[in-house]
Design a protein around this nucleic acid. Structure first.
Lengths: 272, 272
DNA sequence: GAGTGGTCTAGACCACAGA
DNA sequence: CTGTGGTCTAGACCACTCG
């Protein structure tokens, strides 16, 4: 037997590194399928387990995904990270470009995707329900029954109209029922300026935003909906919008694969 | 042989879940050492490899660390996540409480740590050097030679003066040499108000901030310096400070274990 | 010298997918 | 049906640490 001695780094890491380079060099282009583990194991002269561990590293980085029950890992079609500019995306100028909803489809996110050569797609479901407990507490509603309007969106990046696209984020918006029940906010399409403008029309103009950012492991459902491997962690951004009087009128929970995004915030300093 | 059939979830995940609960229940208290893999394997009636995979999950979440060459995983002493409030920590009110440097030791971060029952410690090294390439580009300096003043800090949370503490973040600040060479910015202690006030004294008052947030795998050095397992990802926050004229006067790169922190940003909206 | 964690292999079983 | 990936086990070696 050949003994790979102290090669300074474990062999599964060396395999991962070689695969990483092969992907970057274009040997396995974006969107393509990699050889099966068995073939890679032959190629690298090692055990299938070693290949699996190496691919697991790449999956955690978001470079590839391993769709369940499908042969060969999938190379992520999106190469550069998408930038989410928190402070500019909700400003007036951006909002006017907004497409179907408060979170812009052709606005900030759409522009960033376009720069990378993708078009933005989204699926929306609107229904009455209850928010998760920590959201319910912030909104001051019960976390059971029908206390809020939920606007659940799934957003994707596609190379063209016929491409089903790669999921980029889940965004669930919760609006207290007393503001939203029976209003246009229960319609899928909220018109020009989106949800934020409609809330303003109803007398709930947003005046300040807080966003809380956490990184955690995805639930099985999230991993499936985002088409990522469970070893890749996700951003969870809790977007909290308040009126000038301090009332919280809307909370959106974004869940995004950590390998796909970069976040950016800009703000002026107090002049002392 | 006992065949664990389709138990709905793989056994390594079940083991991870039981260990997670045992830790939360206080069976393995914060800061303590868990039994060796071998003993856990006996306890759970499974192979050592299965235990290793379960512990690897917990390490990725930041619940435990597996220090190299030490027996038994270490339970993370810090239970709740520390909140880093990006928008408030650099405002004047916070900065006046600042201890030894621009990033507050007894300021914002110190207050958050105190709330969790910890005290803040830090180590600082100041020297002339070159920033990483992407930072050099932003600063408009070369990425070789001695082009900037580097203020490298390592911050820790400790339970008391005698506790060496748990590393919470690395923060490297880069200031262009033409601003900083020969000034008080090359001293370890920059006095009241910290680095930001000294830059203002020198005519480079900061007027706006941009922060870019990325989540990635740590380098081996970072994992060692932060005392985390390599499977846990880290936040990399690039903090960019500009003057009113748009000149970038300081860039700080924060590297923080993702399991230890939550980020928060707040800002007012344009009134349309 | 024993024990330990990290690594690697060989081999096995299963559910499932595609031919 | 075969092939595949996910999972698990048994067993091995190594570098290292601790008595």
């Amino acid at each position: 037997m050949v003994w790979r001695m102290n090669e300074e780094r474990p062999s599964f890491r060396a395999v991962a590194e070689r695969l990483r380079e092969a992907i970057k060099a274009g040997q396995y282009p974006p969107g393509s399928t990699m050889p099966t583990d068995t073939k890679l194991a032959e190629l690298f002269q090692c055990n299938r387990t070693t290949i699996a561990k190496a691919l697991s590293e790449l999956a955690a980085e978001g470079l590839v995904t391993k769709p369940p029950r499908q042969q060969g890992a999938l190379v992520n079609p999106i190469r550069e990270k998408i930038v989410r500019d928190g402070t500019s995306r909700y400003q007036r100028g951006q909002r006017e470009e907004v497409g179907v909803d408060g979170v812009p489809a052709r606005g900030a996110a759409g522009a960033e995707l376009a720069r990378l050569g993708f078009i933005s797609k989204s699926e929306t479901a609107v229904y009455r329900g209850a928010p998760p407990p920590h959201v319910a507490e912030l909104l001051g509603v019960e976390s059971t029954g029908e206390t809020v309007v939920v606007r659940a969106r799934r957003m994707l990046a596609a190379t063209g109209p016929s491409d089903p696209g790669t999921p980029t984020q889940l965004a669930d918006t919760y609006i207290p029922g007393e503001l939203a029940f029976g209003t246009v906010l229960e319609q899928e399409n909220t018109g020009s300026g989106g949800m934020i403008s409609r809330l303003a029309d109803l007398g709930y103009a947003q005046s300040s935003i807080t966003e809380e950012i956490d990184v955690r492991s995805p639930t099985a459902e999230e991993a499936a909906a985002l088409g990522i491997s469970p070893e890749q962690s996700v951003f969870e951004i809790l977007h909290i919008a308040s009126t000038a009087s301090g009332q919280i009128v809307e909370i959106t929970r974004h869940v995004m694969p950590r390998g796909l995004w970069k976040l950016r915030y800009s703000w002026p300093l107090d002049q002392a």
